[in-house]
Simulated assay, not measured.
Amino acid sequence: MEDAGQKDTIFERIGGTPAIDRLVDLFYERMDTMVEAKGIRAMHAADLGPTRDILKRYLSEWTGGPKLYSPEKGHPRLRQRHMHVAIGEEERDAWLTCMRGALEETVSDREAREGLYENMAKLADWMRNQAGNPHDTRGGHH
């Protein structure tokens, strides 16, 4: 008998495309409504539709699902693509707060959820382009 925990990818373990879609929708719902996310919400366009679609395609591929991002966008180059906005600890933490809540609501497999969050936290930390002082913009705008 196959152990359900032995599925090949995180994408499969969390529930595939429906789970990614729900995760991203809940993430942006939190970004729209949480006081802690007001700053990062202001960095985004009023219409989150295109951004939602891009994140869904990216996360599908990043978790081992269908390659929906790179055929259209090429290599993610996430840090480079976000360099126009100042991302410090506060922005990283707000993003992760929204994502943690969305993951908790979407992914019932605790091990998969924690592993995915841990990888997202590393990625979010790597995305920072500001020094520890949130008012220091030397590393930001290029």
Rank of each mutant, 00 (worst) to 15 (best):
G5R: 09
Q6P: 00
D8N: 13
I10N: 01
E12M: 07
E12V: 08
R13C: 03
R13A: 08
G15W: 02
G15N: 01
T17S: 11
R22A: 14
V35P: 07
K38I: 07
I40V: 15
M43I: 12
P50W: 01
T51V: 15
R52A: 04
D53I: 12
I54A: 08
K56H: 04
Y58E: 00
W62K: 08
W62D: 07
G64S: 09
P66T: 08
K67N: 10
K67L: 06
L68M: 04
Y69V: 03
S70A: 13
P71N: 04
P71A: 06
K73G: 01
K73P: 01
G74P: 11
G74I: 12
P76D: 05
P76K: 11
V85M: 10
I87R: 04
E90F: 07
R92A: 01
A94V: 05
R100L: 10
G101V: 06
L103M: 14
L103S: 05
R110G: 02
R113N: 07
E114L: 11
N119M: 12
K122V: 08
R128E: 00
N129P: 12
G132L: 03
N133T: 12
N133Y: 12
T137G: 02
R138W: 00
G139D: 02
H141A: 12
H142F: 05
H142N: 04
